[in-house]
Design a binder for these strands. Structure first.
Length: 359
DNA sequence: AAATCGGGGGA
DNA sequence: TCCCCAGATTT
């Protein structure tokens, strides 16, 4: 009957009447495209993900096209978006759908959840958007809206919090309007009940919102953990030999897994060219004739858990290097644009002032 | 339960 | 600077 929960749900759907954000995947019913959009939008703002969604739809119109692509090619398309394991999981799941499911996208919540890279949120989103199945989404927007309206102070980044909010979210979901409700609550969180400076003046829940009434808006939702940022200093060796340049594929358990980079020497501070030349790669450069050497400016990139400073040191080699561990590949300079690089290398490669100067 | 995985944007 | 974004996986 007229519970506070019913009030919330009906008011939300009323608010949503005219679609708040006209997003390209909202009218979409193809589960493959919905899946693409949801993976791309994990921890990613709508405006940042939009172009990638269009690119993937264009380059991989069907799940078969994605499955048939090479992993490096998929990563190249993902370049610049971050969280690159999403791209690899996406590709792996596409191959699984084609080989094990006969190319038919899974149509139950349980089966959708089996896809690599699909967790509780994404499974609920696909199940509701594509098949109108009654599963409530629980993303950053939902945590924020519910914690404020209901005045819930349980930290959202704990097991207890996740359980509590999941139960509440599912209770609020109108089973026959799962898709519309899920989109409504996320749009509401993104356009009205924002993290900072929410638009409470135009909020239809104002008079019933616990956080507004108790002036707790800036204080909810509560997170328990704080992040620590580590500083790192990368020295990239751009080793030119004739028309070729050396590249290395990152495989260690670290950032940018499976992306390419120049041979890297990491230290606890930025070093000068001579020091790097002497120390880097365990004397690998020894005995090699170097005709030119110079360095770029220091590029900086701040990530969630680390702050990276990178400097590119340029060498023209007359002799090929001895690659003891078979870690590096030689490629033609003009093919650099075919490889997926971390942002910081992309910056360097596209820095016009340096680029024109060097080639 | 805690640690990691990116890059962009707003305040 | 710090926080957050249509989170998931690994340890």
């Amino acid at each position: 009957m007229g519970t506070i929960h019913d009030f919330f749900t009906s008011q939300l759907l009323e608010w949503y009447k005219p679609t708040q954000r006209p997003l390209p995947w909202k009218s979409e019913k193809n589960p493959y495209y919905i899946w693409l959009s949801e993976i791309i939008l994990q921890q990613t703002r709508v405006e940042q993900g939009r172009a990638y969604y269009e690119k993937f739809k264009k380059n991989y119109p069907t799940v078969q096209d994605l499955a048939n692509a090479g992993e490096d090619q998929v990563l190249k398309n993902w370049q610049g978006l971050g969280y690159y394991s999403r791209a690899r999981n996406l590709h792996q799941a596409a191959k699984y759908i084609v080989s094990d499911l006969g190319g038919k996208f899974p149509a139950t919540h349980e089966d959708i959840l089996k896809l690599k890279g699909v967790g509780e949120y994404t499974a609920a989103a696909i199940a509701s958007f594509a098949y109108d199945l009654p599963f409530a989404v629980l993303d950053g927007n939902v945590f924020r809206v519910l914690s404020r309206f209901f005045g819930i102070k349980t930290p959202i980044d704990t097991g207890e919090g996740k359980k509590e909010f999941k139960k509440l979210a599912q209770k609020l979901l109108p089973p026959l309007e799962a898709a519309r409700y899920n989109q409504a609550i996320m749009d509401f969180g993104a356009t009205i009940c924002m993290p900072k400076k929410p638009k409470c003046v135009s909020c239809p829940f104002r008079s019933e919102c616990s956080a507004f009434i108790n002036k707790n808006i800036t204080f909810l939702p509560i997170k328990a953990k704080k992040t620590f940022k580590k500083e790192r200093f990368f020295h990239y060796l751009r080793l030119n030999i004739g028309d070729f340049v050396y590249l290395h594929k990152r495989s260690e358990k670290d950032i940018w897994q499976h992306l390419y980079e120049f041979p890297l020497y990491e230290a606890d501070r930025i070093l000068d060219v001579e020091t790097v030349k002497n120390k880097a790669f365990d004397g690998l450069l020894e005995g090699v004739n170097i005709v030119i050497k110079r360095q770029s400016k220091v590029y900086k990139q701040v990530l969630s858990h680390q702050k990276i400073s990178a400097i590119f040191m340029e060498f023209e080699l007359l002799d090929a290097l001895v690659d003891r561990n078979n870690n590096w590949i030689q490629i033609k300079k003009e093919r650099l644009k075919e490889y997926a690089f971390p942002k910081i290398i992309d910056l360097y490669l596209n820095d016009n002032s340096l680029y024109l100067n060097l080639f």
